[in-house]
Amino acid sequence: MALIIDNKKLTDGIYLMRVSSNIQAPRPGQFVMLRPEGDGLFLARPISVMDWENGVWTFLYKVVGKGTEAMSRLESRDDIFMFGPMGNGFGRVLPLEKIRKAVLIGGGMGIAPMYGLAKALRKTGAHVKIHLGFTDEPILRKEFSDVADELVINVGGYVTDDVRFEQGPVYFACGPDPMMKAAARKAREAGAELIVSLESRMACGMGACLGCTIDTTKGSKRVCKDGPCFRYEEVTGLGK
């Protein structure tokens, strides 16, 4: 069980929620399963960890359905059912301490995992450039500038238009489908190294239900257990 510390509305339908729980600390790029109690919800929802500090978990989410709508009504000191952390995290795809220069690209709610990743990369001494894309109002500008060497914000356009892909830096991307496809195309053209974090509908988050299976060059993979972080070239639909 976990306890809501606060649950702030940042802009229309977008919330920043802090939760206290002593479950195992996450690695950058992992997620947890969250289920508000008492709303008749059957399944928990996979939500990316934006930040973790001494048992305080920060989640950024957008209201898109019943689960996130129930989540948005939670108040300080309410209980929330939480288990995890789940998934491989970015470091299981490529050891983070080996990275000297990283370019992080986040679109919409895909900005969330980039925050924790940026923090971890900065700790190992890497140079971190962050590109964030928003449809209208930018959020968390201050927070992201605190964990970046360079921060570029795009509003209303294509965040990938601002990114120059080249060999050398490691690129990370998380965001809506068109953004991921554009990032993959540009990475391929430049021969750049790109790691993506994918989103999927899930029932269990553990690798048991097979609700989130995707096609990859290495056969069927589960976004929850084998991912959510993958090399882009492995993911069918992004790779070619």
Partner: peptide, 13 residues
């Protein structure tokens, strides 16, 4: 493949 329903779920794995 999975879809939540009132206190249940539909699956088509």
């Amino acid at each position: 493949r999975v879809w939540e329903t009132p206190m249940g779920m539909l699956n088509s794995i």
